[in-house]
Write a protein that binds this DNA or RNA. Structure first.
Lengths: 213, 213
DNA sequence: ATGCTAAAGTGTTATGCATACACTTATACA
DNA sequence: TGTATAAGTGTATGCATAACACTTTAGCAT
């Protein structure tokens, strides 16, 4: 911290949010098509400028709700991006967050400053604005790294879920198949979930429904 | 990212650096006594304002050099602090870094905006300015978490070192004793270091000197 | 009712890794 | 030469991980 009076130009500060979900065994990210320059027409991460009275965490939650209608997602900061020329207009540094929601029908509201919001498969991303491709790559790495330490997979699932659904979340995020018996044994051993006693009935043998402890 | 013209007040952006070293089996952090208000006379982390043409990483390295004379330290960002009232003067958000240097004689220069720089034992910290106590607590947790995944301990040691020195670094950071044989076996298994062939001669049996691969 | 389909559910073995634990060796120095 | 001090070394045990295939249960079509 300096002691002299501070009158240098200040950078703008934003949050950008990588909102993930898993649909049909596929990891998807929510992108917004930009309506204005720069990068008009390109896809970009939801996000926006920090306001005077809010923390970065609050900013990320607010911008996500405003631009996509998603509330209550699991939000976690994972990195900051600060290259001086990352925004062609003026200096902007951004705190990058990842967010997780269950793959249900979300009312994907087009917010005030976003034309169109759509889920994109992580397998084939479109051309992206700014350095958002770098941010997304870092987000996926952060997500994979934390998936084994925290019960993040549960944030990608509805309140009640089957073990096979959990396994498919892991497979989608990590991009590789897992052994069924080993996965069940080790995941149950974490003590993150418990049986509900109810069964999910489908076309085949019913599956036990679990819930977060 | 928004599309409207951006003319809101911008927060100031700083970096704060938790510079650690291990001296006499004790984890120490470098603090600077503030010469001006606010918190005049309190101890604080080195750090300062982001300049227009530099990244946050560059800012942290520059501020560390300016305020303490330390160059070439291992620097890593671990969190961002953004509570709106964390600085009583005006809005400041800070990117927090930890930095690691070997416990050698460092010319602890008193920089332009710092009266006095001194190593403090993490065991008993003085009263600290701003939210720096929170930042330091988070830095130690981040350091412990990464010590097992990256060869960070080597950044706290000179270029050539003995295995006992490495063990003492781990013990100082984690705050608990470790088994000698198990530590050596598992640390060597990481493949981070190699024998130099030279021995360190002291008052007792000579110890093999190792170096980073 | 019966058979077919599809996903749920379940155990054992082998291997590697973490843990606990004590004595011998090499040097400096008195 | 003997004493003090830190360096250096091996094994046995438990635990977690990895590999691997078949049985069970229901829905549905015939």
């Amino acid at each position: 911290m300096t002691q002299y009076c501070y009158d240098y130009p200040r950078p703008a500060v934003t949050t950008d949010i990588c909102l993930f979900t898993v649909v049909d065994d596929d990891l998807k990210i929510l992108l917004i098509r930009r309506g204005l320059e720069p990068f008009r027409g390109s896809w970009a991460l939801p996000g926006g400028f920090l306001q005077e009275t809010e923390t970065l965490d609050q900013c990320a939650a607010r911008e996500l709700a405003e631009e996509t209608g998603v509330q209550g997602a699991h939000l976690e900061a994972f990195a900051t991006f600060s290259a001086p020329d990352r925004d062609p207009r003026f200096r902007v540094i951004t705190a990058a967050y990842f967010a997780l929601v269950p793959a249900q029908a979300h009312a994907l509201a087009s917010g005030s400053d976003a034309d169109e919001a759509r889920w994109h498969s992580m397998a084939k991303l479109p051309k992206l604005a700014f350095d958002h491709r770098d941010i997304i790559r870092a987000a996926r790495e952060a997500l994979i790294a934390r998936l084994d330490r925290e019960p993040l997979a549960l944030a990608l699932l509805p309140a009640r879920f089957t073990l096979t659904q959990v396994q498919k979340v892991y497979e989608a995020v990590e991009g590789q198949p897992l052994d069924k018996r080993n996965f069940r044994r080790s995941f149950l051993a974490r003590g993150w979930i418990q049986e509900t006693g109810d069964m999910e009935r489908g076309r085949q043998r019913p599956a036990m429904l679990f819930e977060k402890i």
